[in-house]
Write a protein that binds this DNA or RNA. Structure first.
Lengths: 345, 345
DNA sequence: TGCGTATGTGACCACGTGTGCACACACTGT
DNA sequence: ACAGTGTGTGCACACGTGGTCACATACGCA
């Protein structure tokens, strides 16, 4: 096109290797013998255009491989249909599953999730960069977020929706599980079963959910006139759970191990089996989240279901409502978890 | 902000709830008393601008919360910095991990991954939609891809990089593991150990990797003058592996169970333990992929490492080379897996 | 035939940016 | 003092689209 194929030399100095230009509406218009506006209208549902001509234009467009350029369309003040999704640490199986389902729902809505995987400091810079796009929204899943990002977003008028951690700022919608209540329910089940010597493997410090979940445990124990026999701070991982459980089970005579999430609980369960302890005969182990793995035959873990589909659905709802009315007040949706009795309590 | 707070009425008819307009380069230029071009240049690394003025403009820009609009920048013929990442089925732990690391690498390169989670038919439509953006590339991980998408991509001049499945089309780069060789190596280890009665849990049909992996097993068995005693077609999942293993171990006297991936192998391991079989004493079980879980204490699975970091790195490399030279010839990079001896063989 | 109206469509502008080009200006050497 | 050179900056255009506005055409009716 821009270079005759007769000469295969030179043309190397100007633009090194220009890729073939995209088919544009003008090209289609020329081919169809109509104006460019007509082509644009042919792709705009409500627009005014002779039905026959529309069909013909679309046919030619398909043949030539034309699609309207979403960048140009988004530039015109409308929505970009891009949604940034920030994941604090995808290492958690729950977060991973959450993002997986969220992506599916967004795709179905023709919203395009741009993933940002946040390793602390790099996250801030990445968000900064991605905010150069006029995003429809920023969805935040887990992890901690630099304060600056929140102010950045509100300055750009990008709505934020946080899930798993309540962000108390203007214009930020929240979806969160009632962590304390969930743990309270689980703990009460164990108290009612007659357990008395409780150990707790906490989550990583700095996460709101860690504090809330522990608070739930303490509340239920307090109500029953009991207290923790032992506690370790974990990292929400299987390995950390395994190590913590090993130490605790060897040092103390426990009949219950409550874990801040399923990964820790699975680690703990492994440790208990290696020590030859009878689960659930003489030792109960429960987790939190009810990740897919918890239901696998080899674990069959009693846990607290953290309703993932409901959370995703609420995020989508909040997104839609926010897009419909950018000025609406912030909302916080709380989701009720429930105990899932399986074989380890 | 956009409405005087004195009147809370009206202003409702024109545009229902317009969100606050983005700060534009013109605004910054006015505030700084320079031309809009100067602002643009202040944000373009190579551009010609007095250092002091550049600093001053950036300062004012930061204060006003200005960022260049990436949509408009991408429109001007340059790169959009958007990369679509298509995941066949994220259900596989390996794919999930792969995508996780790929996202991290892309973020570090200031390329923005747009995730598409493909459930068969919906995938085609989603890809169609996302191709409206002038993507820098489309990265394909696992799963099958409608033929039409490949032609679409090449028509739009969007480079494709496929990982885990070789796509034999013009302009498509490939990164793939030597599946057959990996299985051949693992099988030979078991043959050398003296195993004789082999069972195989295959992967889902329709995946190239399933066929290749099985071919590797058959090759090594053939070399040793052995053949398969039993085989089942699985689905690459823990549950399917569990069920298949249960049936096979009850029906046949096997001393080895080779599984098409780690998930199947973990399912099989669970089944073997439930049946009270001695692993690795009287039964060897090996998987493929070496996902994180394979190394957990409760599994300690002998398996074949499918080098994930190397694969991701090669994808990034291919991407960079393709962007540097869109006309370069297609490449196929093959990666060598290796056996990881742990406790189940 | 003349006129009002319904309908279809082309020209034009806005969106916000990057960049080639030309021009203004300061400085140096003869 | 003047030509020459090097440096910094503004102007204007291109990018590809969606939507508004005005105009052209056809048609029904008096």
């Amino acid at each position: 096109m821009e270079t005759e194929d007769s000469l295969g030399v030179a043309d190397d100095n100007s633009k090194p290797a220009e890729r073939p230009r995209r088919v544009t509406a003008q090209t289609v218009a020329d081919a169809a013998g109509v104006s460019r506006s007509a082509v644009s209208r042919a792709f705009t549902p409500g627009a005014y255009l002779d039905a026959g001509k529309r069909r013909k234009i679309q046919e030619i467009a398909t043949h030539m491989g034309y699609q309207p350029n979403a960048l140009a369309a988004g530039l015109k003040g409308g929505r970009s249909h891009l949604v940034a999704v920030f994941i604090g640490n995808m290492r958690s199986a729950y977060d991973s599953e959450f993002v997986h389902r969220l992506v599916g729902r967004l795709n179905a809505l023709n919203k395009w999730p741009v993933l940002i995987d946040g390793e602390d400091d790099r996250a801030g810079s990445a968000i900064d960069q991605v905010l150069r796009y006029p995003l429809d929204a920023l969805i935040l899943r887990g992890g901690s977020m630099p304060e600056s990002v929140v102010t950045q977003c509100s300055k750009f008028g990008v709505p934020m929706i946080s899930s798993g951690r309540i962000v108390d700022a203007l214009g930020v919608d929240n979806v969160c599980c009632r962590n304390a209540r969930g743990m309270q329910i689980a703990t009460r089940v164990l108290v009612d079963r007659g357990r008395q010597r409780f150990g707790y493997i906490a989550g990583a410090t700095g996460f709101g959910s860690s504090a809330d979940r522990k608070a739930g445990v303490m509340q239920a124990l307090g109500d029953a006139g009991l207290s923790l026999v032992a506690e370790e701070v974990g990292e929400f991982t299987v390995e950390a759970g395994y190590r913590s459980a090993m130490r605790m089970l060897e040092a103390h005579q426990l009949d219950t191990l409550i874990c801040a999430n399923d990964a820790s609980a699975i680690g703990a369960l492994t440790a208990a089996r290696e020590l030859g302890l009878d689960v659930p005969g003489s030792l109960s182990i429960v987790g939190f989240d009810d990740i897919e793995m918890a239901g696998w035959p080899m674990f069959n873990l009693s846990t607290v279901n953290n309703p993932i589909d409901e959370a995703v659905e609420q995020v989508i709802w909040l997104l839609e409502r926010r897009l419909a009315d950018p000025a609406k007040e912030s909302e916080t949706v709380l989701i009720d978890p429930f105990f899932v009795p399986r074989g380890t309590h």
